[in-house]
Amino acid sequence: MKELDTVIGEHPFFEGLSAADLDLIAGCGQIAVFRPGQFLLRAGTPADHFFLIRRGKLSLEMTAPGKDPFVFETLSDGDVVGWSWLFEPNVAQFDARSIDDTRVVQFDGKCLRGKCDADPRLGFDLMKRFARKLIQRFADTRLQLLDVYGKRD
């Protein structure tokens, strides 16, 4: 069985993080498995966690009453899901639902926020990592909105 800091260190999201920081972060994490249909995050509920996906697949969804959930992205091995834990008011904006058996490292956001507040260097490093993900997700969303496969008028 691998130690949690080793598991975290092998995940692309934390690539290059020092052993000391990995050890510190691992103190807020735990291994978890979500079965198909289980929710990792529900829109409108407190965003207490984020997740590193080790293996599996999940969907990011928006739900409207009386309609099927609208899936706008799927995430899989090596991805990270959840950033509302980092930003006030710390409320999840979307649903994240497991499609396959999804193996993750689940982090306690409150625990990690506390460590970031106590160690601004670590906090800034984490902020940069999440900002890179946000920028990438933002660019992907713009491409999706462009509907580049449409017919030319």
Binding site: P12, S59, D68, P69, V71, F72, E73, T74, S76, D77, G78, D79, I99, D140, L143, Q144, D147, Y149
Partner: peptide
């Protein structure tokens, strides 16, 4: 394989094609 939009009948990726590079 990925698509920009799909309902739950689709069991593949959803997202733009650049998102596949990481897989």
């Amino acid at each position: 394989v990925t698509v920009d939009h799909a309902d739950h009948a689709w069991d593949g990726h959803i997202g733009v094609v650049t998102t596949l590079i990481r897989y």
